[in-house]
Amino acid sequence: MTPYTGNRPRGRGESDEQLMLNVGQGDRNAFDELVRRYSSRMVNVAYQVLGDRELAEDVAQETFLRAYKSAARYRQISKFSTWLYTIALNLCRNELRRRKFKTYSLEGIAERDEDSKIRMDIPDEKTQPDLEMERREAGTLVRQALESLPEKFRAPLVLRDIQELTYEEISEILNLPEGTVKSRINRGRMRVKEILRPYYGSEDSGGMS
């Protein structure tokens, strides 16, 4: 049993894996440190995949809870972060299936709309919004574009282009060959671009040869 360390702050040099091994021996302070290190990342990855803030909090909590419950059986086979992301992504997947997550496709709406225009809170061309508002609205557009992606493209894209993980890590988390991961990320990027093309001004849009 690891000796009780009181409220002593954990050293920065202690690796995630070592901390997790300590958690397995009953060290709650080590677990608190891991939560401090990863809570933001877990909440965000869930938020970017699910698109719901409350749900993202719940998934992140459940991720840590499951990690804690499995701590005694934890073996240092892979990086702790990869392992934690795997739990979070599995929970996201379950959540999407369980709730039959209501994603609305921008493309789908566009197809149905008589004017082939998406009715969203996008800047009115007559009133030029300030830069901050434009940035915020662009962020909203991107998030909605992400939500409209099929799950098989969304998760790898979020992990690579938002969470900044390596292809190797994503491959391990999603249990997919690296080639498949690369292909899905590339296709996901192109889909997002096609969804956003109409909103990013005529100067950016161009035909392909």
Binding site: R36, S40, G139, T140, V142, D161, K193, E203, G206
Partner: peptide
């Protein structure tokens, strides 16, 4: 020129993707 325009659009999308809205865990998360 066409691919150059496409590159500009892609760069903008990639930039916005990287800067997509981040949220903070609630204060009582821990």
């Amino acid at each position: 020129p066409q691919c150059k325009k496409e590159h500009q659009l892609t760069a903008r999308v990639m930039g916005d993707l990287a800067g997509v809205e981040r949220i903070e865990p609630r204060e009582d998360f821990s």
